[in-house]
Design a protein around this nucleic acid. Structure first.
Lengths: 221, 221, 221, 221
DNA sequence: AATGAATGAGCCTTCATTCAT
DNA sequence: GATGAATGAAGGCTCATTCAT
């Protein structure tokens, strides 16, 4: 039993280490040799367990993604029957947590969604991110009212979501340069308050604009 | 002179092509051979003109940056004596323009600020980006009032700036996948309206919160 | 017993598949992994049952050889007391059959006798082919008459045998390219007729030349 | 000038060595490292000059082919206005010469036309062999008379050509095993006599059969 | 008897860089 | 000033083989 676990552990270990390196250094910069060295595994083990560096990459990403989502529930532990504003706050909290504490994950997705748009992760990202986006959009649609178009929703989504990625980047850079972090974990609650209030104000204003302009249109027509 | 011009042209050509490829494919993915092939230059020319790939990289980045700033004035052509809200609008417009039309630039910076945080571009980015950030922060500070702390300003800055990068990423991905763009150039004005209104609402709300909480604090103390 | 049978079946299966792949792709091009995958056997089974790839190779060859000889009797089902011309015809028929229908065998021998002259199969080929050659040569010697030297016999043997290998090659190439076969199975009888008549004419002519030249020599001496 | 020649010599040297090794050991068994070691070239030179091992392979083959054809004119130095029988004799002589003296060539083609029908050389072989085949077939058609079909011609071609390949194989094997050659170069003239006489007799007999059977058909119809 | 895991040697290829001209 | 040739280091991958179970 112990042995069984141990044998499976090589695979697990490699996956963990890979996950870490891919996040820190990106796909190209991370060599199989480095991973295996750190994981104390044979260099051929990667090919045995995962087939290709690419496959390992994709799996590592999924691995990290699942771990992260497990740590921070994407709804921020806000029940789905609570008012939309609170649910949005939950999403924002979860997003910030992922951005600020997820060493391996949101990082990797960033780098690879942008730095390597060759589409290595395209599909796997779509599969994992889409549900999250849909949920956020549903909340926004509710807050924006029935007259909001898809583009309206999407523009607001950008405003809500973009800061997470931005902060991820911030963290990455700081870590790499050895700088003191500007946005520290202790600030999380204050940041959630700020981003939520900011977003809700922006959304309310957007709703007003939508309804006003549609009102005009109606009068005109 | 003729020769000088011609040789200089080779240099220019290489720089242009490098710029393009570095943006599209990143540092690692772009090979000197590819650049030289496309620029119809000898493969040794790069090392001759620029010394190393790294140097070429940095120069290419500066090149792109300057080109882009020249095309889209970072203040959005809003005079510095106009009200802060309008100046913010100018910044937002310029940011969106860079995000949506800058094929080579904002792109490269993204990738390399995050995907290659080895710091190859750290310095050069600091030199070029810092002034832009300072200017934006000054506007935000004005809008947020005298009680706003540096963190307050920075949190708002994130909300204003992050969407640009987000949209850049969007464009990159769409281009690479051959998808129809969600945010098209014709939408620019509408988008500027939206982001500006959204941001101003968020900022006003933030100011209210700052002043309220500081009022409480005052009463308490 | 059951286990024994089952295990033996695995062995058999591997041998069959190996035989097929070795014939189709040659020794180097055929990987143990491929064989085991196709035979639904564990990758370690080969080394368990056969020791090394080389051993498997040799065994596979013998296997194929025996199967083929069993299918097409090398004398073409012509009794040894029939006239030499008819026995030759039998040999030619059997040779053509092996060439045209032997998917796995004559093929493998070709490739390995020539493409892999490292001598992996040298011995095993000698053991299996020599008897066939001897038999053919005996017939030829009979047809060529008592004055024929060993070289005379061997030269004629080449003319008789070479076309078989040639046609094997033909088939292989056609199969691989997906071309329609030039020499089809329905043509077998016509081909046997042709090759036999051609060979007998050639042999008769050769005999005439041998005897004429030996006549001259006699006159001279 | 001398230097120019020298620089080009590396390429030439590699090509020569490659040619030799590919012939002796085949494609798979020949490693780039081995070639470069023997040619005293850097291991990356192959990729610089030829791109791929595959490309080198194809070029090596062409190289050998041309060299060989240059050494032994495929028509055996028999003028095209001589009688068909003599032209056939010329072809047979050239074929035997290639088979018996061509160390690097006919060898390689054998191995690769059969052992590696993956088609690496398919095209290049077609281009080089086809003209030779066409010429031989034209002669045979002339000898077989107007009633001969394509299949008739091809069957005779097999009988004429196959021995060459057979003898090539013979030589290869002997060389590899260190055996004394059965067919020695001194025997060339005698062998040409034998094969020519044998072939002409076979062809005449074939013509007789063709015309006889067509005669019967005519009477029948 | 049979297997899943693991290994080490080796191969082809890429690429930034250098050098002689 | 500019280039074609050449290089060395490194990377990803394949594959036959072994070992513990």
């Amino acid at each position: 039993m112990d042995l069984n676990t141990q044998s499976s552990d090589t695979r697990e270990k490699v996956l963990d280490v890979a996950c870490q390196f891919f996040s820190e250094k990106g796909y190209r910069e991370t060599t199989i040799a480095l991973i295996c060295q750190e994981a104390q595994a044979n260099i051929a083990a990667v090919n045995y367990h995962f087939g290709t560096k690419e496959k390992l990459y994709q799996l590592a990403w999924q691995h990290a993604h699942q771990q992260l989502l497990a740590r921070f529930s994407p709804d921020g532990d806000v029940a789905p029957d609570r008012p939309a504003a609170q649910r949005l706050r939950g999403r924002i909290r979860a997003g910030l947590q992922r951005a600020m504490m997820g060493d391996a994950f949101e990082f990797g997705i960033m780098r690879n969604e942008m730095a390597n748009p060759t589409g290595l992760l395209r599909q796997v990202i779509d599969d994992t991110i889409s549900p999250l986006r849909k949920a956020t959009q549903a909340i926004l649609r509710e807050l924006l009212g029935p007259q909001a178009t898809d583009v309206d929703v999407e523009l607001c989504e950008v405003c809500v979501v973009a800061p997470w990625l931005h902060i991820t980047r911030h963290h990455l850079a700081e870590e790499h340069e050895g700088l003191a972090p500007v946005f520290r974990e202790e600030m999380l609650d204050a940041m959630v308050d700020h981003f939520t209030a900011y977003a809700l104000a922006g959304i309310r204003e957007t709703r007003r604009r939508i309804e006003r302009s549609s009102g005009k249109s109606r009068k005109r027509s």
